[in-house]
Design a protein around this nucleic acid. Structure first.
Length: 259
DNA sequence: ATGCCCCCGCCACGGGGA
């Protein structure tokens, strides 16, 4: 089974590339982040034509997540149970589903804006709630993974130049400790291999030639439980999809499982 | 060449991304 995660930065703007990539990659299950459209505008029909069912949690121009699958889609849960509010509401940042033998979460972890910002506290609370919500599945026997844009680089090796990020979000000890708590709950970082260069970055800013210069970050992560990690045959960042006109600023992370 | 930001909502430009 081929399973992947991709922050598409608007599923509407990315639809031609998304459909082409699904066909060329042969992906069975894709966790999508930043759909940036309401559920009424989600391209269910176009995906169904390629054989995919979709579970969507989205409400408008910001955020939005989905799981699409051509190997079954059951027991859908929208949102993060027990998750914190921001500005008085739960944002659409999580959706989970069982796809054949595997249960997955698609998550778009809050950005945090700046250290000390309300959004940064929200980010840390959100990750605590995620840990609590996945604890049972993380310790279970069924292959299980949380996939998505975590907006945290797990180590200094996961950013192109740590000095650039001093004092910024995405690299603070508190954010990295929150990932550590997920690992303590039974999940491990399924680190992909890069298709080029030495580090498996997944995000490159659109500006200032960051992609050609490989000024990237690894913030799109696959956190799998022990059965998931054991079933892993391969994992890689499809950086080819970051190239050319109309690309997202994130590349897909692909995992092949023997399940 | 992978090439100097892009998305949305909305019709002008600001907010968000990281």
């Amino acid at each position: 089974m081929r399973i992947a995660t991709w922050n598409v930065n608007s599923i509407t703007a990315r639809l031609p590339r998304l459909l082409a990539w699904l066909e060329s990659s042969g992906t069975d299950v894709l966790c999508i982040q930043e759909t940036k459209c309401g559920e009424d505008a989600f391209p269910f029909e176009e995906l169904r034509a390629l054989g995919y069912e979709a579970a969507v949690n989205a409400d408008g121009r910001w955020n939005g997540v989905a799981v699409i699958s051509r190997v079954g889609l059951a027991d859908v849960v929208k949102g993060l149970p027990g998750g914190p509010d921001y500005d008085g509401s739960q944002e659409p940042r999580a959706v989970s589903a069982t796809c054949g033998p595997v249960r997955v979460w698609s998550v778009y972890v809050p950005n945090g804006r700046e250290v000390g910002h309300d959004h940064y506290a929200y980010k840390l609370h959100w990750l605590e709630s995620l840990r609590d919500a996945v604890a049972v599945d993380a310790a279970g026997e069924r292959p299980f993974a949380v996939l998505g844009d975590f907006n945290v680089a797990p180590t200094d090796e996961d950013v192109y130049d740590p000095s650039v990020f001093e004092g910024a979000t995405h690299v603070t000890p508190a954010e990295r400790a929150a990932l550590g708590a997920l690992r303590d709950a039974g999940l491990s970082d399924v680190v992909p291999r890069p298709l080029k260069y030495d580090r498996p970055y997944t995000y490159w800013d659109y500006r200032q030639l960051c992609f050609p210069k490989n000024r990237g970050m690894r913030i799109d992560l696959v956190y799998g439980n022990a059965p998931f990690a054991k079933a892993r045959q391969d994992a890689y960042v499809d950086r080819e999809e970051r190239k050319g006109k109309g690309a997202s600023d994130h590349a897909p992370v692909v995992v092949d499982l023997d399940v």
